[in-house]
Design a protein around this nucleic acid. Structure first.
Lengths: 214, 214
DNA sequence: AGTTCTATGTCAGTAGCTGACATCACTCCC
DNA sequence: GGGAGTGATGTCAGCTACTGACATAGAACT
């Protein structure tokens, strides 16, 4: 028999999520998390660099999903399409492998605690950097690669928020596609009347029924 | 005569920047900052919510510049143009009122310390939220408002990085304009071949001489 | 059987941050 | 002009996140 219960990391993550929901993030100490997981505080910090990090085990996986898809995208596909397709694929995979209730609970936790939100944002920034690098490997030049990556992250964020905001969480990838289309529309609006900045505003075209209400 | 030296806040900010550059962010304690500013640690925390916050007095000003410009933009102007114009205006104002050496020093500090970078990112996220709100006030609907705001922030970030990256920092607003144009190009690429995703990649058009080397 | 490995525990210490209360020049008001 | 605030600061005690150094005991290897 093993000397210790296996999967201390997993137990710590589970204990942390439970306690954060029971008592709030600030209201629970690392010592309490460790105790519930049956280890000491010191062990917690061997697995996680700090208290927040316990909530972010999934971010490396997400990044891998996206980057892989960019690398394996057909050569002729244009940059923004590659990015959005990769995001849609990752979204589908995420939805297939994660419990929606967990995803929503974690989202609420993050959006209610700026301390955690900061960490989330830097993870997304790291994701953008990885996407940029993957685009460079496809031969995409600067600043197009960075812009496509950052725009992609914006699309992901907004698509995610609208997905999680649904009463019954539907198709994540569809929300991403909708956000990408909306971004294209917004960006294109500014294209023609650029020199004389007084052309009448065009109405945005309504796309098919995937968009949430609101 | 006054009981205390005036502008404790300013002295703290100055002392902090100096010490962070001398000994690094992690290598300087709040106590040291306070001592150099001639106050106690407790007083530091009366002016700033935490150690990082001492570096972010400028972010409210920047936000105000941008939001004001959005509110006062002509009604007929289209959304993305409003945002980029506001960013360009704020960029010009920032460049006119801040010492480039300070801006660069602060940038290097932020980009070398993930702890500070997290704070920077959440300030930008708050900025995006304010831009979104200002666009709502113009009658822009969701998700276009959020997307335009997030895309604008991406443009600002990348324009800023490329500006600070220049040996001799030139025209900030021009970098923002270049980034905005590049984003439009990137987003437009994905427009036509959407249904059959195998159309040949088009070369991106090179714009005029404002773009930095790299 | 002995050695080494590895995940964990123990302990002491630093630094960020907070609440409670004290101080004292200045100001206001009767 | 004297007493009662007021407001920026100091003092102090304390919590918690986080770290380095060292100890321990099964497990695995030879």
């Amino acid at each position: 028999m093993a000397r210790w219960e296996p999967d201390a990391r997993g137990r710590l993550e589970k204990a942390a999520m439970e306690l954060f929901q029971e008592r709030g993030y600030a209201g629970t100490t690392v010592e309490e998390i460790a105790a519930r997981a049956g280890v000491t505080e010191r062990t917690f910090f061997r697995y996680f660099a700090d208290k927040r990090e316990v909530l972010f085990s999934g971010s490396k996986v997400l990044e891998a999903w996206i980057v892989e898809r960019i690398h394996s995208a057909p050569r002729e596909m244009n940059t923004f399409a590659v990015v959005t397709a990769a995001l849609e694929g990752a979204a589908t995979e995420l939805q297939a492998t994660r419990d929606p209730a967990f995803v929503r609970a974690r989202y609420l936790l993050v959006s209610n605690h700026s301390e955690i939100q900061e960490r989330e944002l830097i993870k997304l920034a790291a994701l953008a950097a990885s996407v940029t690098k993957a685009l460079h490997a496809r031969g995409v030049a600067e600043p197009g690669a960075s812009l496509a990556a950052e725009a992609g992250i914006a699309v992901f964020k907004i698509g995610f928020e609208r997905w999680v905001g649904e009463k019954k969480m539907g198709n994540f990838a569809a929300h991403i596609r909708a956000a990408a289309d909306a971004l294209k529309t917004v960006a294109a609006e500014g294209t023609e009347p650029q020199s004389s900045r007084s052309a009448p505003q065009r109405k945005r075209a309504r796309r098919g029924g995937d968009e949430p209400k609101r």
